[in-house]
Simulated scan of single mutants.
Amino acid sequence: MKILALSTSAHRYQSSGLRTGMWLGEFTHFYDVLTEAGHEVELASVAGGTIPIDPVSLKTPVIQMGGTNKRYEDPEFMSLLDDTPSISDVDLDSYAGIYLIGGHGTMFDFTTEPVKAAVAHFADAGKIVSGVCHGPVGLLEVTLADGTSLLDGRRVTGYSWSEEKLARRADEVPFSLEEKLSAEAGEYTTAAVPMTKHVVVDGNLVTGQNPTSATGVGEAVLELLG
C-alpha cells in the first residue's frame, strides 16, 4: 500500500529569519519502517518543489543514532526531496493514508486550507491520518464532511510546550501546539519525560509527540495497514 508523507515548505521562522523546515529524522524513521515492510511512502509538500531541512535535525544526537545522517549522505534518497508535488496537486484517492511530518516549518504552513482539506479527505474516507511532533498542526481546525471537528473527542499528542522551551524555540513559534491540541481534542497527553517516545492511537488517528516517536508512529501505522 501507499502512504502519502507531507512536508512543510516553510524554510524560515517568520520572526527571526532563522532557518527551519522538515525535521529529517521524522521522515526517514517513518519511511524506513513502512518501506522495509513492503509498503510505499511518497513525499509531497505544501507548496511543491524542493523541501527545506531544519539544520538542527542533522545535529541532534538521538536522530543521528537513528540513522538519519546515513540517509542524508545518500544522494539517491535525498533526491526524493528535490522536486515534490504540492499537496493541492496530489491524487489523494491513491493513498491508504497520510503522514504529517514534523519540523517547525509546519507551524507556518500546515495551518493552510490545502493541508486541512487533504487531512479531511483521508479522515472522511476512513483512512489513516497520522503525524508526529509538529506535524499534528495539520489536524487543527479540520472540519469533516458532517460538519464536526476532526479532533472532537479524540485522543492525541504532539510537541509539548516544555519541549518547545527546551529547544529554545518558544519565542519563535506563533502559538503553543500543546495548548491548541488540548483545546480541540478530547484528550491531549504527553510522555512523563520530555523528548521521550510517546505515541497515541485512536482508531485510524495516530500521533507521536516528538522526534523520538517517529519510528513508533510508523509501527502503529504499519499495524493499521495490516
Rank of each mutant, 00 (worst) to 15 (best):
G126C: 09
L181S: 00
A118Q: 03
E184C: 06
G216F: 00
V62H: 15
M1L: 11
A214F: 10
I98F: 03
T50W: 08
T196D: 06
A10G: 01
Y13F: 15
G153K: 12
K116I: 09
T84L: 11
L225H: 10
I51Q: 04
V142E: 08
A47L: 14
L205M: 11
P52H: 03
Q209W: 02
V221Y: 01
S79V: 11
R19M: 09
Y13C: 04
L24D: 02
V129W: 02
M107I: 05
Q14C: 06
G138D: 04
L58M: 10
E26I: 04
F108G: 01
E113V: 06
M195R: 07
V62Q: 14
G203K: 12
E164P: 00
D54Q: 07
G38S: 09
A123Y: 10
P136F: 00
D54F: 05
A96W: 07
V33G: 03
G131Y: 00
H39N: 11
V142F: 03
S15K: 15
A185D: 03
V217C: 04
I53N: 00
F77L: 14
G38E: 08
E113H: 03
E178V: 12
D202P: 00
L166Q: 14
S7F: 12
K2A: 06
G97H: 03
E163R: 04
A214M: 07
K165E: 15
L166F: 13
A220H: 01
M1A: 14
G66P: 05
M22Y: 07
L144P: 01
R168H: 14
D83T: 13
E163W: 05
S176Y: 08
E178C: 12
V199P: 03
A220I: 04
S162K: 13
L140E: 01
D83C: 12
K116Q: 11
F77S: 06
Y31V: 01
V206I: 14
G131A: 06
Y95I: 08
D54N: 09
H39M: 06
H39W: 10
S45C: 07
T106R: 06
G158Q: 04
E164F: 06
A117T: 14
H104Y: 12
V206P: 00
D91L: 06
E178M: 12
A47K: 13
D82H: 12
G218T: 02
L222K: 09
D93P: 02
Y72I: 04
L18T: 10
H11K: 15
K127S: 09
E141V: 08
V62R: 14
A125E: 14
N210W: 04
D109V: 02
V193H: 05
G135H: 04
F110S: 01
P194C: 11
G216L: 01
F108P: 00
A214L: 08
G126Q: 12
G105T: 04
S57T: 11
I3E: 01
V56I: 15
V62K: 15
P61C: 07
L43K: 02
S162V: 15
V33F: 07
V156F: 00
L150Y: 01
G203Q: 09
T215A: 13
M65A: 15
D83H: 15
